[in-house]
Design a protein around this nucleic acid. Structure first.
Lengths: 216, 216, 216, 216
DNA sequence: GATGAATGAGCCTTCATTCAT
DNA sequence: GATGAATGAAGGCTCATTCAT
């Protein structure tokens, strides 16, 4: 029962299935992005990291550009699924849901040093690359709306004197800023933020905004 | 009395002084960073934007790498001076000082679309480029300490049940996240943040954390 | 009696005989040569045009180079057979034979847009590829000698004041030039040559050189 | 009077004028085309042949493709000027003009082994490269018309029973075919055509078509 | 026999840097 | 000081060839 039947398309086999190879290359891209940043990433790096040859990238992605776009899409979708699944918990109160969605950004699945660094790398390249904005915007809108809804309900429920949009924006931006801060801390030491400090900051904000719903 | 002392250092004069040329090139770098992003920036772009020849860059900065480092240093120092000068206002209360330092990040001097975009571009390239972290860290430490001090004093003064470090981190990260959000909004439209919304979010947080010191 | 002997060698059968597969690939090569030219031809193109996989080419021809050589050999031999068979007509006069051999170059069998284009493509790659010259030279020599013989006989027979070699060269070169001209006309429009105009030019030359043997 | 003042922009000077560099690179392209053929030509070859670095090609021509197009344009224009200037001889009869234009294709200026080979290389790549056809067609039309006019006049003048278009086509195609034949002879030996034999063939054709105007 | 994913050498192109003018 | 043509290393992409299936 506990045995896991490995599929025939393990990454190391000479002929892996298309999706497997693509994922393998996307993972390698994230790793290289984290190690060298966007501007210094080369397809040779990615191929080497994946343990494959350079030609394979254009074979599976047509171009470096499309590999990167696919990588961002992957991250965006994974991020989306993470908070979306969190909301699916049955029987959770509105406040619990808000906490789940907001603090869920620091889950082990998506909150890894490499993925964080990859996200920042993409953010930095948004200028002059409208495609990256496009890739994210649909997912982002859904997220923004979801958080806004929860804030609205809690505000009404608690009779808080707060503007939902402002609170939503504050929570979301704080999350982004903390990711940035944590990511900066990966490379060096002094005065940077740890994941648990990040969660505390977020929690403090929830408590502060909605004292009737959250306790430190 | 009739002599125009600025003449020799006008950017358009054929023989401008070193500092003037350097500033001219740094400004052009910021503009290109905003227009094309870090990875697509070329020295030819910068030179053209500055209305100068390519050769001049290596003459004044030795290399592209050093030009970019100088550009980041310029941004970091300008940012530093902005909040540091804000604190120098005589006779301001602690709460007023905190507000000044936190909302001062949205001053017209440093909060311009191009400079914002340039900052994001540099953040994205922090990975594998320790120099960029080094350039900022001294300034950042001072800032972190300054905000932390103010939070400590306000917490003590108001008897708030809050951990200064956590509040400091929340305020600073929110600021970063809002910059990110505003920058993203420069390129596209839906659901993004404006500068005034950013200030409101920051203000809401201050009010929420320190209700005795701040009112919406 | 009811057995269909051809079945096993139909091009579409999974296991076609070697000669059939080779011919299929040579035909595809001619088609690609005509569509894209020599320098842009890829084995993937050829394979796709033939409806086969890339691997099959090296299996049947060892290399791209050898496929192309085989293709040229095929064209050269087909061309050779075309005029050689024409000469085999029994009871034809010398003049008739010359006309058959010279105008036979415009027969439907060998004078097709694709084959013409393929020939021109090979001519263009003669430089630095002695093999192509070698492939053709044996066939060419035979042809040259045959046409020269016929010219000699007609000149002697008609008492013309002409040098056989010069006439032979003129006729053969005119043929080549007309092929070139017709091929050029395949891709565009204005002022180019049609097959019937080509035949007229050749005929006009025969009439002009040998008025006693040919009439327009 | 005999002293030739070399201009300041000799090809070997570090900063030659744009036209000089371009011509230098076009000449090198012709040489490489003749040595290796179209498909094997690399920009590294061209640069090396010109004694310059690879980067210079894209600097002066943007791309390999445009270098080749410029090369063909150069050949086409040079060819055009050659016969056009030949027609400018004052006091020449119509027959003399036809001879000048037709045999002028074998002038030392344009009839060199390298240029011949380059022409053939381009002819071979006409398929799928409409640009090459476009480059030549305007020049070609003018030429076709000029030869046609001369044929018309001679036919009328001599009362020949010939169709001008057919004669024109025969002369022009013979010229093309002879170029092809001579070019083939550059690389090998047996039974190929020399320049003088080519001129004889052309002359024989003129004599044959227009016996009252030309004598062998 | 046949397939097509995988490999990697080779080529075009870009661009930071140099240096003669 | 300033210019911009020239250099050449580095990187992305193509594609002939291989080989596990």
């Amino acid at each position: 029962m506990t045995a896991v039947t490995e599929t025939a398309t393990s990454p190391s086999s000479r002929k892996a299935s298309r999706p497997v190879r693509r994922q393998q290359l996307i993972d390698a891209t994230i790793a290289v992005l984290a190690r060298k940043g966007y501007s210094a990433l080369t397809v040779a790096d990615v191929a080497k990291t994946a343990g494959l040859s350079v030609g394979i990238i254009n074979f599976h992605f047509e171009s470096k550009e499309k590999l990167l776009a696919a990588c961002l899409s992957h991250l965006a979708e994974e991020y989306y699924r993470n908070w979306h699944d969190a909301l699916a918990v049955p029987g959770a109160s509105v406040a619990e849901r808000l906490q789940l969605i907001v603090l869920g950004d620091f889950n082990d699945k998506i909150f890894t040093p490499d993925k964080l660094a990859a996200w920042i790398a993409f953010w930095g390249e948004t200028q002059g690359r409208p495609i990256y904005v496009e890739i994210c915007s649909a997912y982002d809108d859904a997220r923004t709306r979801a958080v806004n809804d929860l804030c609205e309900k809690i505000i009404k429920d608690g009779g808080y004197k707060l503007v939902p949009g402002t609170v939503m924006r504050a929570l979301e931006s704080l999350g982004d800023g903390l990711w940035l801060g944590v990511a900066a801390g990966n490379s060096q030491a002094k005065f940077t933020i740890t994941a648990s400090q990040a969660r505390q900051a977020l929690q403090a904000m929830l408590v502060s905004f909605f004292p009737k719903h959250f306790q430190s």
